[in-house]
Amino acid sequence: MNIFRLVGDLSHLLAILLLLWKIWKTRSCAGVSGKSQIMFGLVYITRYLDLFTNFISIYNTTMKAIFIAVAIATIYLIYFKFKATYDSNHDTFRMEFLIVPVGGLAFLVNHDFTALEILWTFSIYLESVAILPQLFMISKTGEAETITSHYLFALGSYRALYIVNWVYRYYFEGFFDLIAIVAGCVQTILYCDFFYLYVTKVMHGKKLSLPA
């Protein structure tokens, strides 16, 4: 474990708790893409299948359990409890356009052609594009609530910090995983546009609004 990965994990945890808190407190999931949340749920479930078989540490197991639980709770709030506030007219990104190619790629490009490894690879590829429906929704509505932009900033920062973690591990542990690194770079690049808007607007107290 290194500081970059630890801060990255905490930023990730902050992001998903922030979103859950926002939906619960405002009793509304307006501006939140349910499709992205479904894909994140899929990411955690396919990646943490080894939750009970491969014990790494208390921290590792606890965080995995929290990620899965919070993802499921968020999906429940969006599609069941606060279903009336779900903005399906703006959450129109076709998930199958992401899941099918990612599933195919996971079969073609992976480290080991075993079920667990292919599911892990699928999870890594899917995570890199899972935010697209959310970013697409913001581009359609033209704006995002401030709390939602904080969620996106924390979520985008987590994988950016992981990239630093991978550089660190390469130089100090001789460890690197090209699949995770490439997917992590793609994922972070997708946030660049948002990061720019966040820094130039939200940090100056303005609302996040995309140029119409």
């Binding site: 990965r5 994990d9 990730h12 080894d50 491969n54 790494i56 540490s57 590792n60 965080m63 995995k64 990620f67 480290h111 080991d112 992981y162 973690n165 542990e173 460890f175 690197f176 995983d177 995770a180």
Partner: peptide
């Protein structure tokens, strides 16, 4: 070695 190590990340 890479396989084993990879699984320690979230």
């Amino acid at each position: 070695e890479i396989q084993q190590k990879k699984k320690d990340e979230l």
